[in-house]
Amino acid sequence: MEAERLEQLRAQFSAEAAGIDSESAASALRDRWTGRKSGLLTAEMKTLGKLSPDVRREFGLQLNALKDEVDGRIAELLSGFGARREAEQLVRERIDVTLPGRRQSSGRLHPITLMRERIEEIFVSMGYTIEDGPEIETDFYNFDALNIPPSHPARSSQDTLYLENGLALRSQTSTVQIHAMQRRRPPLRVIAPGRVYRRDTPDATHNPMFFQVEGLLVDRRVTLGDLKGTLGEFVRRMFGPGTRTRFRPSYFPFTEPSAEVDYSCFKCGGAGCRICKGSGWIELGGSGLVHPNVLRAVAIDPEEFSGFAFGLGIDRMCGLMYDLDDIRLLYENDARFLEQFR
C-alpha cells in the first residue's frame, strides 16, 4: 500500500514539475514537496516512525530515493531558471563600449619644459648641478667677462635688446658661467637652462626669445677629449645609443679652442633626410674649452684649472624632435598646438 502511494506521489510530482514555467513556481514546488514544515515528502518522512520496522526499512529506502529524485529535479529547475535570469540580466545590462570614455580633461607640459627636463635629468645623473641667473644683465656678465670685445657686433643694438637703464637682456646663458664661477670655486659642473633674447624679428625659424642650456665644467686637467666624451654621452642618452657625434673647429669669443658639435640625424641615422637637410648631421651647438680670459675674469688661474663649456638651443631641438614647421608656435600658446605634446 505504501509502495502504491509512493508511485502516486512520484507521478504527481512529475506532472507538477512538468508544468513549472518560472523560477518562483519552482521555489513554490520546492516548498510544497520538500518544505521543512509542510512539504508533502516531509510529511511522509514523519509517518515512518509509525510503521513496523520491516515495512519502515523498506519504505524508508524508497521514500529517500523519491526525495533524492525530487530534490535533484527541483535543483535542476532552479538552476536552469537562475542561469536564464542571469543571462537575461547580463543582456539587459549590455553597454556600447565603443562610446568615448569619460575623461578628466588633462593639460600638457610645454614642449620646451619636456625637453628641458630630459636634458636636466641626463646631466644631473652625470654629476652636474642645475643653476640659474638673472635674465637682465650688465655688460660685464653678458659680454666683458665672456671675452666679447667692445667692438663685437653681438653688442650692438641690432643684435642685443637693451633697456633704458643701459642693462641688456642676456643674449646667451653663458652669463651663468660667470655667476657660477663667482659663487663657487672649481671643481664645478653646472647646467643652466633659461630664456635668452636676441633682436630677431620672428619668422618660421627665429624668435626674439628662446631657450638655451649652458653647460660648464671646470677642474684640473679638463681636456677637449672630455668635452667630446661628455657631449657624446649626452646625445646617446638623448637621441639613442647609436647616435654619433662630430666635432668641427669653430669660433666663439668665450672658448678656445672652440668646436661646433653635430650629431648623427635621429631620423635617418646619418643617411640624409629632410630633417638633417640631406647631410646626415644635425647641429647640436657650440662648445669649447673655456677661454683663459674668461677664467681670469673670475680669478681662476688658467694654468691650474681648465674647463669646457657648451651651449645648446632647446627651441631648435624641439623644432627638430617634434618636426615643427614654424617655431613661432612655441610662444603663441595655442591649445591646438600645446595639446600635442606629452
Binding site: 607640459l109 610645454h110 635674465e135 600658446n333 600645446l338
Partner: peptide, 12 residues
C-alpha cells in the same frame, strides 16, 4: 596639468 591646464610660455 592633471587639472586640465596646459603650460604656456609667453614672451617676456
Amino acid at each position: 596639468i592633471a587639472t586640465g591646464f596646459h603650460e604656456a610660455i609667453s614672451f617676456s
